[in-house]
């Protein structure tokens, strides 16, 4: 079944992985900043972080991608396709990640904070030594799910002509017409990367829930 198609698709897969990792790094940083920002005692920061989260969650990632690629240049900011892709995907997933960060911090049980008070930790120590370490553990499974969603979302940047896997598949389809084989390969390749990630996330999920039961 069309092994000759593989080199081209795998070259695209390399770009897909690069895009995923670069966007994931951006998303992680942004998620932590915005997630903590939404819990800030300072109202302007809360509003700023909240606006970012709601705007990026409230609009479509593809619209954001097109906006960064086509509309941003008209503001005088010119991004190449890869940068626009990473920016759109990273900021979009980062907005969802920010909610994960916020939710995880808030779901550290009240009793943990009370124990911290009873042991006379300062507010900053309670955050750093008790709340955040537990929240980080809770964030792992949802972050893993976000990573999988991100991997799949990279297919969208084919629409702004980044030669990742879907783009290569689409172009091959146009040039060779071998539609069945190409799309079957595409599906299998995505599945081969995403499904092990899914299984990994589930394994982590089980361990996390066992670990935090104290």
């Amino acid at each position: 079944m069309g092994i000759d198609l593989l080199p081209t698709l795998l070259r695209g897969a390399g770009i897909t992985i690069q895009l995923t990792l670069a966007s994931a790094a951006l998303a992680l940083v942004v998620a932590l900043i915005a997630g903590l920002g939404r819990l800030s005692p300072w109202k302007p920061i809360r509003i700023l972080a909240g606006t970012y989260v709601e705007v990026f969650r409230g609009t479509s990632v593809l619209v954001q991608l097109f906006w960064f690629y086509f509309a941003l240049p008209l503001f005088g900011i010119r991004l190449d396709a890869f940068a626009a892709g990473v920016l759109a995907l990273g900021l979009n997933v980062g907005a969802y990640g920010a909610e994960t960060v916020r939710g995880s911090i808030l779901s550290v049980p009240r009793g943990q904070i009370e124990a911290g008070i009873a042991l006379n930790f300062s507010a900053a120590q309670r955050m750093r030594r008790i709340v955040l370490p537990q929240a980080f553990v809770m964030m792992l499974p949802p972050f893993g799910n976000n990573l999988i969603e991100l991997l799949k979302a990279t297919a969208l940047v084919s629409l702004i002509t980044i030669p990742e896997m879907t783009f290569e598949g689409y172009s091959l389809q146009m040039t060779t017409g071998r539609t069945n084989e190409i799309f079957l390969w595409l599906l299998l390749l995505y599945f081969a990367v995403a499904y092990p990630l899914t299984l990994g996330v589930r394994a982590i999920e089980r361990r996390v829930s066992a670990f935090l039961r104290a």
């Binding site: 943990q112 124990a115 008070i117 009873a118 006379n120 370490p133 553990v137 104290a214």
Partner: peptide, 17 residues
């Protein structure tokens, strides 16, 4: 002032991590 006080809770509240 609260360094004079200690507490043991109904639900333990040990730090799981």
């Amino acid at each position: 002032v609260r360094k004079n006080i200690g507490m043991v809770f109904q639900h333990f509240n040990l730090f799981p991590h």
